[in-house]
């Protein structure tokens, strides 16, 4: 017999480990990835591969040579960052922009704060927003899905951008829907027949992943559902107040990476609140801000900014949204 091991209780451990949680996120993203490969072809494969590999490599290099700590790429968190970043990019993005985005995501988004667990903002979103501001043209030239490409149109605007552009030109929502740009149905947004980034095209694939994450208890329903609820309520009120100016809630839900953001980016452990109450507040805030930015801001899409903004408020939420103590007496 070896030396007995002594430790304080408990002496058994549950099934969770950081690696398992991250692996489950990767698995949950697989349907969305496959759909994007199907619609965008080799371009999508290239962007995803490049983004994942460069994120992992950057993490490894920074840990090894700058922070001089034991590299922890085994926990797969860099893979998740890379995947989520790539799902936010258009499939025709030049390779060097993808690499710069990865560097910003890992370097500025995560490592400067001390690595996994210490970053206040979602790393993938930091990378994405950096690219969106630094290279707006490349970042908003969305290739059409291979199935929707016609000889004279290989790129197109996203549904939200079409609406925004139309409204700017003084059209009403109904007029925009009848215009020639508006070539898709709600069914298309559900399955991915629209222009956009890799991950925002197919709602069904993303929801499949959501179900998987819930079953595996990786995340709870609180953040995504409160985001969806806030979006539906807020955009619903606007829509009923003025249907000519504001599009219906369903459109908001299905387009512009809403599901990708709500399920995979807002729920990032490190940058979301710690309590269920806090998660609801956080989710509601994201939903409201997204609609606010989409309908009144200058960018057609708002969820990235909304999440980053709410990330900044998370410490405050954690401070005030404490769980109610067992048997608490006031």
């Amino acid at each position: 017999m070896n030396k007995l091991i002594i430790s304080p209780s408990p002496h058994v451990h549950g099934e969770f480990s950081t690696k398992r949680l991250m692996r489950d996120v990767v698995i949950a993203l697989l349907p969305a990835l496959l759909v994007s490969f199907y619609f965008f072809g080799f371009g999508a494969v290239k962007v995803v591969g490049l983004s994942v590999i460069s994120c992992v490599v950057f993490e490894f290099l920074i840990q090894k040579f700058l922070l001089k700590t034991a590299p922890s790429i085994n926990d797969l968190s860099a893979v998740v960052t890379g995947l989520i970043l790539s799902l936010n990019l258009p499939s025709n993005l030049p390779w060097w922009i993808v690499i710069i985005g990865s560097l910003i995501a890992i370097g500025v988004g995560k490592m400067v704060f001390g690595g996994l667990g210490n970053n206040p903002f979602n790393p993938a979103l930091v990378g994405r927003v950096f690219l969106l501001i630094a290279r707006p043209v490349e970042m908003t030239t969305w290739p059409l899905p291979l199935t929707a490409v016609t000889p004279d149109a290989t790129t197109g605007a996203t549904p939200l951008a079409i609406i925004k552009e139309g409204l700017k030109n003084g059209l009403t929502i109904d007029q925009i829907k009848e215009s020639s740009d508006y070539t898709f149905s709600y069914l298309d947004t559900l399955f991915g027949q629209i222009g956009g980034s890799l991950g925002e095209v197919s709602a069904v694939a993303l929801l499949l992943g959501f179900a998987y994450l819930l079953v595996r208890k990786v995340i709870t329903w609180h953040i995504p559902v409160s985001i969806f609820a806030a979006v539906i309520v807020f955009s619903g009120i606007l829509h009923f107040a003025n249907p000519d100016r504001f599009i219906d809630p369903l459109f908001h839900l299905l387009t512009g990476g809403m599901i990708l953001g709500a399920v995979y980016m807002a729920t990032d452990y490190v940058t979301s609140p710690m309590t269920l109450k806090g998660m609801m507040v956080y989710g509601t805030g994201i939903g409201l801000l997204t609609i606010l930015i989409r309908t009144f801001g200058s960018y057609p899409e708002g969820i990235s900014f909304a999440i980053l903004f709410m990330n900044a408020i998370v410490p405050l939420i954690n401070k005030y949204m404490k769980p109610k103590l067992f048997g608490e007496v006031k």
Binding site: K3, L4, I5, I6, S7, P8
Partner: peptide, 19 residues
């Protein structure tokens, strides 16, 4: 001689409270 192996938090106080 070490006769067993402590596997808890790396703290003397925790260890002393354990055994």
């Amino acid at each position: 001689q070490r006769i067993n192996e402590f596997d808890g938090a790396a703290s003397c106080a925790v260890m002393a409270a354990t055994y």
